[in-house]
Design a protein around this nucleic acid. Structure first.
Lengths: 142, 142
DNA sequence: TGTGATAATAAGCAACGCTTACTATCACAT
DNA sequence: ATGTGATAGTAAGCGTTGCTTATTATCACA
């Protein structure tokens, strides 16, 4: 057999799948999905971005983001405002309503992180973050 | 702002997404998808399983697996054989044709692992595997 | 001023997963 | 022996997240 107990790739994607599932169960009552949460969080760090730039930050295609923003705008969590300097572009802003959702996201994320990292030492946590960042960088589209 | 540079969860799922994308690009010419590859690999470790048991191993719903098996059977990579002891159930077997695909999957997985783990020491690799296994366990449905 | 690049989107598709409901069969207690 | 509840698999239909290709409007600049 050429496959051992755990392939690195399967282990990583299994873990991510479980995390996603746990997240989805945690926000079951809210109208927010994981991709939307991700967009909100990144946008919160950088309000006023254009869609193109947010898409690049999220490493998804502009079209994929456009529909994500459609959903968030439909929930009145995000506003598209004309870019004063470029009539092709929008600038993205969070609404007041988004703050409550960000609170929920933060709480869920904290709870999940605690559950996921239970029994793992601080040094190990830090170490894993470092390695994962490196892996992400290694895999980033050239 | 309550979100730091990297949230653990986002980091993990980002990394997994990039890995998935890289995998999909690598097997673009083959009729195999990631979920199918996963099923094949797990099945190779345990030929003759019933669908229910493979679904549980993969942590997906029986229905989700049924369609995965449909696809693999359509490609003549997997065979459903009647369970001699239970007329409701099938036993799953790989065909000869599957071996070539498993070879490809193994090569792609190796290449991806090398690329992903570039610049990471052996000790760090081992450590990340250990921690990820623990996380997976922590997140497993109770 | 016109030509190529860019921002956003329309349309349509694919992968992967889910739930609910159904059929056939099984296991076991009465 | 039989009938009742559990189990194996599937049909149907949907949701989330992503993609590609093509179109429109606008911009930048030679």
């Amino acid at each position: 057999m050429r496959f051992g107990e755990d392939t690195f790739g399967f282990l990583l994607s299994d873990t991510a799948r479980l995390l996603r599932r746990a997240f989805e169960q945690s926000v079951q009552n809210t109208p927010i999905t994981l991709a939307q949460a991700r967009a909100l969080v990144y946008l919160a760090r950088n309000e006023g971005m254009r869609q193109v730039d947010l898409a690049e930050l999220l490493e998804i295609q502009p079209m994929t983001l456009a529909r994500l923003i459609d959903q968030l705008a439909a929930e009145s969590l995000v506003e598209r405002r004309q870019d004063p300097a470029d009539r092709r572009a929008y600038r993205l802003y969070l609404t007041d309503k988004a703050a409550a959702h960000l609170d929920v996201i933060a709480k869920v994320a904290d709870g999940l992180r605690d559950r996921a990292l239970d029994g793992i030492s601080d040094e190990d946590r830090e170490q894993v973050m470092v390695v994962l960042r490196r892996i992400r960088q290694n895999l980033a589209p050239r």
